[in-house]
Structure formats: C-alpha cells, structure tokens
Design a protein around this nucleic acid. Sequence first.
DNA 1: CACGGGTTCGG
DNA 2: CGAACCCGT
Length: 469
Amino acid sequence: MKKILVWFRNELRIHDNPALFLACQEKNAQVESVYIAPIEQWKEHNMSKIQCFFIWKNLKIFSKNLQKIGIKLNYFSCKKYRDQIKIIYYFCLKKKIGKIFYNKEYSVNEIKRDQKIKKILKRKKIKIIDLRGNLIFSPGKILSKKNIPYKKYYFFKKSFISLVKKKKISCFPVPKMKKEIFFSDCIPPFYKSFQKNRYKLQNFGEKEAIKKLKNFCRYKIKHYHKANKTVNDERNSQISAFLSIGVISPRKCLYEVTKRKKYSQLSEGEKKWIEEIIWREFYKHTLFFYPKFFFVKHYISWTENIRWRKNRKIFKSWTNGKTGCPIVDASMRMLKKKGWINNRLRMICASFLVKNLFIDWRMGEKYFMSKLIDGDVALNNGNWQWIASTGINSSPYYRIFNPYYQSKKIDKKGKFIKKWIPELNQISTEHLHEENFLKKIKNYSKIPEKDKYSKEEIIDLYEKNKIKI
DNA sequence: CACGGGTTCGG
DNA sequence: CGAACCCGT
C-alpha cells in the first residue's frame, strides 16, 4: 500500500479541495495529512490576533471533519516560513510518503518555499502534485489580447466574465467516506493572551460557512448592490473571514450564485457580489505577476518621490478613532474592537489617512492587517495602493474621498456614528456630517487643523512630485 | 502582421 | 491620465 500526504496550507475545508479530493482518488493508498502553523512569521507579518484565533478554531473543526472521512491531521507549529520545509521533509521520510498533494499559493514567500521543497523532494523521488484550490482561474489564464496580464481591473473583469460565460463552474466534491477514526487533535492556541470576549465573533467551521453562503445567496444577495450605500452589516455576506483562510473556496462562492442561471440572467446584486470575487482574483493574479509593485516599488513610478509623513501621534489618533471626523472615528473604533468593518468604511478611513492627514499608506496597510479578521496581503495592499494612487489600477491622485459627504450618504441618521462615539450622543443628526459644526464641540477629541490638509493642498503635494521619468 | 491613431472607460 | 481595445493601413 502506498502512502500519500495531503499538505493543507490555506484551505481548511473538505468541500472543493482539489488536493484532498484527488489524493483520496488514488487507488490502494493510505492518506496522511499535515498542517503547519508558522506562528512567529505570522506575527512578524502583522497577522491579527483575531485572525490567528479564527484559524485555530477552524483548524480544530477541520481536524474533526477529516476524522469523519478517515483521515488524521498531523499538526505542527514552527517559527519561520522555511521551517515548514524541514517538517515536511522529515515527515515524508519517517512515514515513507511517496507522493504529496497540495493546493498552490501565489504570494512571494509561499512560491519560494514550494520551489525549495520541490527541489529537495525530487532527490528523494517523492512526487509532488500541486493544484489550484484557492483561485477560480490560474494566473496566466486571464490575459490581454497581447498575452500580457492585465493591469486594469475593468479589462480583467470583462475577460473574467467572458470566461465564466464559456465555462461551467463546478466544484470538487467531498471525498468518499472511509472508516471514521478518533483521536484528540492536540492543537494548542496560537496566542495565549487572546481574550476572545472582547470580540463578538462569528461562528466557526466549514458547515457554518457554507450555511452562511447559501443563506446569503438565497435572501440577501438581491440587495447587495445597495450595500455600499449603508453601514448596515446585514447587507454583507460576512464570509470574507472564511474566504481569507480557506474555510470556503472562491469557486464555491461563484458556483452558489451561478449554478441555476446563466450569467446574463443574474440580478444586479448577484453581479455586484461576483465582482467582489473578481476583485479578489484580480489582486491575487496581479501580485503573482508583479510582486515588486506590491512590496518594493510603486507602479506609478513618480509617486516614489512623495515624502509622506510618518507622525506617530497623528497616526495614533487615527488608529484610536480620535481624528474628529465622525465616520472615520466610528469605523476605526469598530475595527479595533471587532476586527471587521465593511469595504466602504475601509476605503473612507484609508483615504482619510492618506489624503487628509498625508501619512504613509504603508503604516495604514500594516495597521489594517494587524486588526482585520479577514486580512489578506494581496487585497489589503492592493486596496491601500488604490486609495494612495500609487499602485496598479490605482485611482487618479486628484480623486479624493470627501468623508463628510460619504458619511451623510451611508449613515444619514447617524445611528452607526452614535453607536461608536458616545461623545456625540447629544448632537442632533443634521450636524453629525457638518465639518464646521463638529470643530466647535469641546469634549470630542480631534486632530489639530494645522495637521490636516485640504483637497487642494494634497493635490499640490502630489503634483509637486510629478516629475516624469 | 506590426504599427499607430482613435475611442472607451474608470471602485 | 493611460491601459487596452478596435480598426485601418
């Protein structure tokens, strides 16, 4: 009997998991599985405590789900990313593994790790089967007419949709049940000091995630196109956290929306929601092809000349929700407490940091990662650079969000603002979105006027550096 | 078939 | 503004 290893990395699920499914398809094989948590590295990369906790909880449930189909999950933890290589290597030798299955990851460290392990295991004649589990299309599948990866979302989207129209989307089923096994999982918490009571967490596990997805697609998705007009969380699918750690697959999401209809028959809300999945796919493809523009240099090269401020005190006012702009403060306080705010609010806060306070977008990017339950490097970095007008597909630098206008639009009655900023409880609704009125309120802390910039000043700061090379 | 000009569109 | 397309030469 041959021995096969499934190495789980960013997919804590038994549904639509190509590596798991195909490993179980092998004839006369005994399937082993491994998950490795590089905890130190997570911390170094600013992964939030809540996301670590979320992984841990879901991992425990995943382990139970695997037991039900007769597979044991071997858990390891390590410090660095590269330590994973050793663990896999010795596991393979010890258990006499002949073949490894895993789903590919597309970020820089992950690619390096996988290249190394391929090299090392080749010497030992261990086969590696790498599959696509966390993207709907592989990077390279969606290219322009000149066979170049897109740099503009608009064209990527068009191409993506035409592919979806042509291809039937289907998911990998759960592998056939073998005899159920029992063992205790022995997975210690990643953070000892994490106080889960501070957050009202969502439920955990794959079953919950799928239930949530199906429920959303059945009832709420119809109204999704209105989601950016309100701060009501009920409008959102609330599955981003599951998606970010692979408890649910993007293909499953797309499948649930399109399984009964053709693309052209989809409602406005359904199309809008699919677009969010396309954005995710866009940034992940782009990161794969142009990692440099995420981590090293700005795609819009002249923006390298900009000397953003790095003022800690002002930055702290922003993270603590004490800027004096209610919609920003409410959002930042919620983010800190819950680890989640909706996309529109993230944009407003990010824009405020970069284009009202003129602080380096990278500081904001790091902070978001350190708080978000659904943090994802590609999406977080991509969106921050969109706001900062520095990256691929970034917004024109002269386009600047007006937080007061946004606030009026999405929280007209001030319900959200008042919930998070008790200092403003006594203020009447119409004044909540009035910059000049808010300046006069005494017990509501704010950033001094001299540290804020007007739209014209910011445009000027950008334009000063706009030297074409 | 490579090029370039005109057009379209943008979280 | 500028990427990517279309369409003409």
